[in-house]
Amino acid sequence: MDETPAILLEQVNKWYGSMHVLRDVSLSVAQGERVVVCGPSGSGKSTMIRCINRLEEHQQGRIVVDGTELTDDLRALDAIRREVGMVFQSFNLFPHLTILENCTLAPIQVRKMKRVEAEELAMEYLRRVRIPEQAKKYPGQLSGGQQQRVAIARALCMRPKIMLFDEPTSALDPEMIKEVLDTMVGLAETGMTMVCVTHEMGFARQVANRVVFMDRGEIVESGEPNALFENPQTDRLRLFLSQILRGH
């Protein structure tokens, strides 16, 4: 069972109109593996990660998540979305619901959990991201870092097997980045399968089994983080690394 990869992309292609945004992307993520995706802006990182839970549709190739292939079959899609949690750059909490309701909504509606159970579960995860005291507030009353931690808790409440992160810290002020990264490190330690788009190199070195570098819709290089950062094989990666190092 453990040999089936959690996520498998084979020769995936995608176009927006005539723009080719994913070119023959192949990637296999083992269960429990933690992959960091980096690359310059517009290189297709978000598009790739959003194809994994079909917020975007790919046009060629195969995507298999947790043994189920992503097709037009809606039932398969529902099954996959139950197992895959996603955290967005802009948090996307539901502003008309309290923090607690944000967290219990999907367990109650999708997993058919009883309200009491769902609330217990939500409080457990809110404690884990260290904001149980905010449960009765609305998202608009929280700081960015707190909101992003709620978003992580909300996704975890579905007890997903896989977590996707699309630049979870890039909308945050520097002093809040650490609290969110700490939460993600904690999550990595539980053995969760994670695919994370981020430019936080420290985070990548600390938790990633593998870093994938994308440019212009292709996976250009991938490997163990230290090796990849110390020893880039391509000019594109060298250029990218020099740019983000200068930026920091």
Binding site: L55, D78, R81, G85, N92, F94, A106, Q109, R154
Partner: peptide, 29 residues
């Protein structure tokens, strides 16, 4: 914002649940 709909979908809510619980309450307000 489009993110509201995407977040609901990513959580596995069906179209009608998403519309009833997330989209309409905010849009009508």
């Amino acid at each position: 914002p489009k993110g509201q709909s995407e977040a609901a979908e990513a959580l596995g809510l069906s179209y009608w649940r998403k519309t009833r619980l997330i989209i309409l309450p905010q849009a009508l307000r």
